[in-house]
Each structure stands twice: as structure tokens, then as C-alpha cells.
Computed example of a mutant assay.
Amino acid sequence: MPNKASNLVSVAIQWAVHADHPPFSEVDNSRIRRWAKACFLDRSEITIRLVGEEEGRQLNRDFRGKDYATNVLTFPMDMPDLGADSGLPVFMADIVICPTVVEREAAEQHKDPIDHLAHLIVHGCLHAQGYVHESDNQAELMENREIEILKRFKISNPYVLSSKK
């Protein structure tokens, strides 16, 4: 069920890598948009870019100083607070997902890869809104919000270890 602000949320999707094999060939742009839109209560403009490991590694190295491809990177744009009546987005961000890393992590963690992808999109969207996980309290707040959003899509708690093998 979409939230009230979902029509105020614009989600552009860029496939810089082809996911033409299972599991991600089953995921269409409308599904990705639903996951992202569920995260926002305010007017927002988000771009989700799905990249190969080379681009993911380059971005992680350039912006975080870490020389490996990671699952998700979020680049929030600092927006001036011009008030709700301005008509401008409250949140703008680019979110980069590396499906190869997502698929590998899902296998290692015995998770459904599509559920893991949904979780990382939600995770990135929450980062775009200022959620962080630097302290235990911050992590708990962010994780609880992720669990709540994923539950709407019948996706189980990603922080519970799966016994699937």
C-alpha cells in the first residue's frame, strides 16, 4: 500500500549494468520505485543507479576511500529548508546499488536476493533522509524503520539470521 506522499516522490532508475539473469531479471522498475517511495513522507527526488562492480568500486574508492565494490552508496544533496509550500523536494539523492555484490551477500547470508535488494534500496533511501548507524541508538532507529517499511512488502526482518541453506 503506497504512503500518502508517494505521489510526491520521484524515482529515476538507471541500469548501468544489465541484470538479464535471475534473480534480478525478475525485478522491474515499478517494483524498485514502490520500495523507494515507501520510505519517504516528504516531497523527494531520488535516482537509483544499478552498477557493475568496476563502477561501484571506483565510486566507493573516490568517495569513501575504500577500494572495493560495496552493496549500496547514498549521495544525499544538501537541500535548503525553504518550507513545505516551496514546491521543491525536501530530499534529493543519488543511490548506487551493485547487484553483483547484493547477490553475493544474499548467498553468503542465506537471504532471498530480491528481498536483500529491497532492503538495500530502503537502507539507501533512509540514508538520503539523514538516517545513520554510527551509534547503537542510531542503528536501532534506522533498523526499526527498515523493518517497518519492508514488512509492508511482506519481506521479513533482514537483521534476523536465516536458517535457509
Rank of each mutant, 00 (worst) to 15 (best):
G124D: 07
E26R: 14
N137V: 13
D62T: 01
S156V: 13
P89F: 08
D81T: 04
A16I: 00
K111S: 08
D115K: 04
E108A: 14
A36T: 06
A36Q: 05
V9K: 04
S163E: 14
H123V: 03
N29C: 05
Q129D: 05
P113A: 04
R152A: 13
F40L: 06
A36K: 01
V51A: 02
L126R: 07
C125M: 05
P158F: 09
L88M: 13
V101P: 05
G56C: 03
I97P: 06
V90M: 12
V96T: 06
L50N: 04
V51Y: 04
A139P: 00
P80N: 09
N3Q: 07
H21W: 07
Q58K: 13
F91R: 10
G65T: 00
N137P: 03
Y131P: 08
R64F: 06
D62L: 09
F91Y: 15
L59S: 00
I13Y: 03
P99Q: 09
L161E: 15
P2Q: 12
S135M: 08
T47E: 09
D136A: 15
L50F: 15
I32V: 15
N137Y: 06
L41Q: 13
E54W: 02
E148S: 12
K164D: 15
L8S: 10
Q129R: 11
H127C: 09
Q129N: 07
D81F: 12
N157S: 06
T74E: 10
Y131K: 08
L161V: 13
S25M: 11
N157C: 01
M92W: 10
V101I: 15
R31K: 15
R31G: 09
P22Q: 02
K154V: 02
K151F: 06
V9C: 10
L126M: 10
S30M: 05
D78H: 14
V101F: 10
F40N: 01
G124V: 05
D136M: 11
I32C: 11
H127F: 13
P2R: 07
V122D: 01
E146C: 07
E143G: 00
N71P: 04
P89G: 04
A5D: 01
V122Q: 00
A106D: 05
I46F: 00
P2Y: 08
F153E: 05
R57A: 02
S6T: 10
P2M: 06
R49S: 11
K165R: 14
V160S: 09
D94N: 12
S135L: 09
S163F: 11
A107S: 13
G87L: 12
V17S: 10
N7W: 06
K4E: 14
L50A: 07
V27S: 12
S44R: 00
I114G: 12
I147G: 02
I114M: 08
E146T: 04
H116N: 13
L59P: 04
S163G: 03
D20P: 03
E54T: 03
A93E: 11
S156L: 10
K111G: 06
Y68C: 09
R57G: 00
V90D: 03
H133F: 05
I48H: 00
E148P: 00
